[in-house]
């Protein structure tokens, strides 16, 4: 299964649980909500979507099946923003 990791080392500010990620090379700034920030913190090292789902379920004590879809969409969005890449 594919694993993902931060594309590079970005400057990150945390404000009220949200993360503001500064991509100085692309001159872009990206803001993540609280759960997005938690998922972002998991991607410091290679992490599969399955691992992220399990960690989020444990951390937030939820068993909701929609989490799987939420995280897949979130990871796709981070890829589109150029913030993560496939770890190989």
């Amino acid at each position: 299964m594919a694993s993902y990791i931060h594309k590079e080392k970005f400057e990150v500010l945390e404000l009220d649980g949200e993360s503001v990620i500064l991509n100085a090379d692309a001159f872009m700034v990206t803001t993540l909500n609280e759960v997005g920030s938690f998922c972002w913190s998991l991607l410091h090292e290679p992490c599969t979507i399955r691992q992220m789902i399990q960690t989020v379920q444990t951390h937030y004590a939820v068993e909701d099946e929609s989490i799987e879809q939420d995280i897949e969409q979130f990871v796709t969005h981070l890829m589109d923003c150029g913030l993560i890449r496939h770890a190989s």
Partner: peptide, 20 residues
């Protein structure tokens, strides 16, 4: 002691605006 779960979201993705 758990935080509330909301779907993880990218709230904003925008270019940096420079004020000179």
């Amino acid at each position: 002691m758990k935080p509330a779960y909301h779907a993880p979201k990218v709230l904003k993705h925008q270019p940096i605006r420079f004020e000179t």
